[in-house]
């Protein structure tokens, strides 16, 4: 998509944007503009949780289903690469959801006593969306990871 942004070929780009929107609408049953509004809410929530520190990629592994059978109970596993010693450990991991009514899901607070920064829980996802995890280390650095989860809606189970 970044390559498309610099392309002067408006008609082709137009087609791509339209098909993209159609795909999202088909997957979620909602217009993409709503997801965009929630994206801003997630950014604000991240700022509230970890401050202005710039986020780096890496170190976080998110274990989420590609397709969640039911949005009521989506298992999430989180692991952050860290020695978990008194001088170098993961302080907290904050989980956010871009397509939920509220961005916050959970904040997990670790200590060196954990040995590993690895935890799992279950969350609600209203629709297909990105799940964002932000990890704050004891030295103040912040890491970030995003994973998309498709949520099945409709049918007899939905």
């Amino acid at each position: 998509m970044t390559r498309m942004d610099s392309s002067p070929h408006v008609t082709r780009r137009h087609v791509l944007v339209l098909t993209g929107a159609a795909a999202v609408a088909a997957g979620t049953g909602l217009l993409p503009s709503i997801a965009a509004a929630d994206k801003a809410a997630v950014e604000a929530a991240i700022k509230k949780a970890v401050g202005d520190a710039s986020t780096m990629s890496g170190r976080i592994t998110l274990d989420l289903p590609q397709i969640a059978e039911n949005g009521n109970t989506v298992p999430i596993g989180i692991e952050v690469d860290s020695p978990m010693t008194e001088s170098d450990y993961v302080k907290s991991v904050h989980i956010f959801a871009e397509g939920n009514p509220n961005p916050e899901v959970a904040s997990l607070h670790f200590t060196p006593a954990n040995g590993v920064a690895k935890a799992s829980t279950r969350m609600r996802l209203l629709r297909t969306q990105n799940v964002v995890a932000v990890a704050k280390m004891s030295d103040g650095s912040v890491y970030r990871e995003t994973v998309e989860v498709k949520v099945t809606i409709g049918g007899c189970g939905g």
Partner: peptide
């Protein structure tokens, strides 16, 4: 087969009562 976005099962009863994700 799928019925909308759900996979139809044989409707077997051997797991009931069940914890159903839909019901919470």
């Amino acid at each position: 087969n799928m019925i909308r976005a759900n996979l139809l099962s044989q409707g077997q009863s051997n797991g009931f009562p069940v914890y159903r994700l839909k019901w919470n």
